[in-house]
Write a protein that binds this DNA or RNA. Structure first.
Lengths: 168, 168
DNA sequence: TACAAGATGTGATTGAGTCTCAATAGTGAT
DNA sequence: ATCACTATTGAGACTCAATCACATCTTGTA
């Protein structure tokens, strides 16, 4: 699952793992080898990913000290979400994760054809959200806005395909 | 799962089942007893529901001709979404359905405490969506906007609880 | 009314995610 | 550096939603 790097990243004083260590300490949890491996792996590239991909990369394919078991992958992902390092969203009934720490708030366009996620930012959306919440006396803590459709690439592809068919 | 009836319903010329029959015919599918039972049941009350509730009501608890098996519940729900009679959304990793036919487009506030869905409409949101899509040369077909937080009721409840605790 | 194709139900199966529990490994104190 | 305490891990069993396969039953049609 690739994506467009449309957004600037945000300056942060701590590396993700350092940030995670702070979180772990504040919760009386331990800094372990599997947690380190997973965090380094996840933050080594900026992509949307699902638990399954991680399990493949860290559990199925790997042997030795770099290996992380399936339950631990799930457990650690939850902790990372809890710690604010990752954001979790449900797309097509499947959990997808992305970097949250060191990355600005944003929403997504989801191409139902190639399944790519395109990011965008809109301050207007946040204002709209706050206004709606206020009107309903609702205390908003977060939101999820996903626009479904067909991305530019896939539109071009299907136009090309259509043209080829017209020639037959 | 209850909800607030904040929105007016839209006038439609056909009953849901009639509308579904049209769809079935257009696809060369058949109007069967289980499909009729399920549609009548689903449109007899205006609520958000999940497949599990339906299976309980139509498969687990019922015997005789009104019974609809689990696979058929799932199959028919998909057809109803396909036919535009129901809308499907994923909340907390679980599929939730609501009436689409005869009901205006809207979005939701989701209370993470009582898990109620509150509906609201915003033309502004639709404009925003179209604008974002246009900027990215994206052909938008639908969207999902969910604001997570705590509803008015639950805020009151936790204030009461907090006050009681203060007295101890 | 009979027949071919579509639909249904039973029971098995998949797949994501979680749980249990014995073994292991951080952590803070000595 | 070592110890004791306790959180964490991994293997494998398990749960739950959803789907599949297929023998049997229904529907629309000739």
């Amino acid at each position: 699952m690739t994506e467009q790097f449309a957004l600037e990243s945000v300056d942060v004083s701590l590396q993700p793992m350092e940030r995670f260590e702070e979180y772990l300490q504040s919760k009386g949890k331990r800094v372990t080898q599997p947690r380190r491996v997973l965090v380094e792996h996840v933050f080594s590239k900026h992509e949307h990913f699902d638990a399954d991909a991680l399990i493949d990369e860290l559990s199925t394919q790997v042997k030795g000290p770099q290996r992380v078991s399936r339950p631990t992958v799930y457990r650690t992902l939850n902790e990372l979400v809890e710690a604010g390092l990752l954001r979790k969203m449900e797309i097509g009934g499947r959990a997808v994760y992305e970097h949250d720490y060191g990355y600005p708030d944003h929403d997504h366009l989801y191409c139902t054809q190639c399944q790519n996620l395109i990011e965008f930012q809109s301050t207007e959306l946040v204002e709209l959200r706050n206004r709606v919440a206020r009107e309903q006396n609702f205390r908003a803590s977060s939101h999820r806005f996903i626009i479904n459709g067909i991305c530019e690439e896939c539109q071009k592809k299907s136009r090309r395909k259509k043209r080829r068919l017209d020639l037959i």
